[in-house]
């Protein structure tokens, strides 16, 4: 049974790119969210095995969203996505409960490694 993934990023392009990589590698992308609020709502609804979470997003940022999701499900497996230069935010995200982090621009292998490792 393929692991289910919820992708969160405010740019449609990044969602598309991530989805492509993730789907090609045997995961099942069950949902996409364009901001933190949507991610929390969709997590509650879909209960995906894994979540990728962008940090800088409108409405609700990724770190707040991680905290909210961890409230819903303390076992949520969230991978935070950041860019170079967001170190303090990545640390915040990890402290909030993110299992791993990815740095943009994404390397497909890294994305899959992170998903696989977080899924275990």
């Amino acid at each position: 049974m393929a692991k289910t993934v919820l992708i969160t990023d405010d740019t449609a392009f990044m969602r598309m790119t991530l989805k492509n990589v993730i789907q090609k590698n045997g995961f099942n992308v069950v949902g996409e969210a364009a901001d933190g609020e949507e991610a929390v709502a969709k997590y509650a609804e879909l209960r995906p095995d894994l979540v990728t979470m962008d940090i800088t997003m409108p409405k609700m940022d990724g770190i707040t969203a991680i905290k909210e999701i961890m409230k819903i499900d303390p076992n949520a497996k969230i991978i935070v996505c950041s860019a170079m230069g967001q170190k303090p935010m990545v640390i915040d995200a990890l402290n909030a409960g993110a299992k791993d982090f990815l740095v943009k621009p994404f390397d497909a292998e890294r994305v899959i490694e992170a998903l696989n490792k977080a899924a275990d």
Partner: peptide, 15 residues
């Protein structure tokens, strides 16, 4: 908001 936009552009371009 501007920072976010520039940031997103950077990420997209890098990708």
């Amino acid at each position: 908001e501007m920072f976010r936009a520039a940031h997103s552009l950077k990420g997209m371009s890098g990708t």
